[in-house]
Design a protein around this nucleic acid. Structure first.
Lengths: 159, 159
DNA sequence: TATTGTTATACTCTATAACTATA
DNA sequence: TATAGTTATAGAGTATAACAATA
């Protein structure tokens, strides 16, 4: 997202002659999914920004937090990423002191991944805020609609 | 997506002792949205791959197709991207002969963006395939569920 | 033989800052 | 003054291929 976008322009060169035509795009489920995720992640970023964590990173830290000791390859499979990608990812987390590599007690090739104390502290701080944020968004729907939305999304995901 | 992922592993080092714990993640709407989009875009990629177009690029080409003549800045505002990002984006499209820059008849600073003949041809080929694909996915839902899903997603987006 | 983590390398996507030419 | 497009530059994020250590 560009920094300039915070300063909204009311009209554009185009709008002097023609409104932006959304055309076929609004007919596609993909665009609705994309915009919903963008909206949610955009708001989430504001919560996470103070800790320098992206929404995507938050999900990965949550995964490590809930699976202490699992390996880089396990993580790669969980997030569908290449092993070399995970190396770079954990390098970044490690340099920010959020995650640590420990020797695996079972396999001397592996690293056991864990959140550091600072990483755990960040998650203890952020998880309630993220959950509160989700509740704010979901409160636009009735309870029935909330469960149905999750249900329908899972059908799209193929579950 | 890693090429190796096509060869699925049945168990991992972790699963010898403990199953992957999803933990708090499945409680978050964001993860359901993300997975639904991933699933849809992953399938879409297979359709678009022959033309070397990503799902995200397809959406942008659709936008240019439905707004012939609009400027790079207009596009940037529509997709929430920086001007310099749009330059690089259109450079890539131009080198693939999908989009062309023309002098704007109204403003000598601007470029009027249009699909080339080849770009229009690609879209004529792809749009029906993408629409058919969406119908296949959506056919998992009843017609009522389809409209409700779009409706609920728009509420999440804040419309 | 297969897997784990790593490195070297490369490509895409995105942004900021500074510039120019227009408006 | 403000905007449109560009360039130089930089930083994520991702992947492939080849390697050593270990299983």
């Amino acid at each position: 997202m560009p920094a300039e976008a915070t300063i909204k322009r009311i009209d554009s060169h185009l709008s002097r002659r023609a409104k932006l035509q959304k055309g076929l795009l609004p007919g596609l489920l993909g665009s609705h999914l994309h915009r919903a995720e963008q909206a949610l992640f955009g708001r989430m970023q504001r919560i996470l920004a103070g800790h320098g964590i992206t929404p995507s990173e938050f999900g990965i830290l949550l995964l490590i937090n809930d699976n202490p000791g699992f390996s880089q390859s396990d993580l790669g499979r969980a997030i569908n990423a290449d092993r070399s990608t995970v190396v770079a990812l954990i390098d970044r987390f490690e340099s920010r002191k959020l995650v640590q590599r420990q020797p695996s007690p079972y396999d001397r090739r592996s690293h056991a991944l864990r959140l550091t104390e600072a990483g755990q502290k960040a998650m203890r701080d952020l998880v309630p805020q993220v959950q509160k944020h989700e509740q704010e968004i979901l409160s636009r729907l009735t309870v029935d609609e909330q469960t149905q939305l999750i249900d329908l999304l899972n059908k799209i995901s193929g579950e």
